[in-house]
Design a protein around this nucleic acid. Structure first.
Lengths: 145, 145
DNA sequence: CTCATATCAGGCTTACTGACATCT
DNA sequence: CAGATGTCAGTAGGCCTGATATGA
């Protein structure tokens, strides 16, 4: 019965609200596989680009250096990644993916794909492409690489 | 030089990232007028639907009851709203907009409109309509009124 | 000297959860 | 009694700031 306010038609509202639902879907999927967003991003980045120092990983996965420490701690504790000193540069830790980490990643990817489907359920293939196209252009504009 | 990961093409990522930018634009605009999102939503809801109890306001503005208290405290302190006991129901406080509150709301609306423009800058009118249309359908599906 | 790296401690915002006393 | 209302305390996730120690 509560009518809805005018500001609920604003692009910024529509965007943040749908993003909220997207985030919830993804997060719930990850939680079902015992992980959070940072964990997935780190594992996926490791597989795609290989072992790297924490600083490099942070840049590639868009995770703050300060948050990398705790994230890696979590993953090390579950033996999903290894952290080893870099013999060539004693400041660095080289982080690498374990076999268990790869298996976990497969699970997370499954959850993630499912979340995309639920998220876009009401849209046709063409519409999905339209949406991602428009969003990509916005992102490109506000976040030039 | 850092290449970008595959998951950065996922709809959920595009959505949450653009939403992040939208949120930043809006938040910065509000901050320039000494307010935050909750403050605007409350003021706008009050103007659109008139004085109401905190619980009713919470439903209309999608703000949790627990957060309403602090939000209204802030606004009362700046004399942008008034909080008065409801003579008809002693559980309730009736919150209403002051003249200063209306002036502040005008400022916030200006900032908000500007933020929409910056957000959608790279899109044509047609594309903006496309985007809001698609987002509205997603929202409708995930959040049926 | 500077810069990069890793760590630690903490804040901020939005959303939400639970407990509680009060009143209808 | 159930149910609504207002208040308070606290959590969680993602993002971020700053200070510090170490080494290149």
């Amino acid at each position: 019965m509560e009518p809805s306010a005018q500001w609920k038609r604003l692009p910024s509202w529509l965007l943040t609200q749908t993003a909220g639902h997207a985030h919830r879907l993804v997060t719930d999927g990850f939680a079902a596989a015992n992980a959070r967003g940072y964990h997935y991003r780190l594992l996926a980045t490791l597989e795609e680009f290989g072992p790297a120092s924490q600083a490099a990983l942070g840049r590639r996965s868009d995770i703050h250096l300060s948050d990398m420490v705790a994230t890696i701690n979590d993953l090390v504790e579950e033996k999903l990644v290894k952290r080893a000193p870099d013999p060539a540069d004693r400041r660095r830790n080289i982080v690498s993916l374990t076999a268990a980490g790869k298996r976990r990643l497969r699970k997370l990817e499954k959850q993630l794909a499912q979340a995309q489907d639920e998220l876009l359920a009401p849209l046709s293939e063409d519409e999905r492409a339209q949406l991602t196209g428009l969003l990509s252009r916005l992102l490109e504009h506000h976040d030039p690489r």
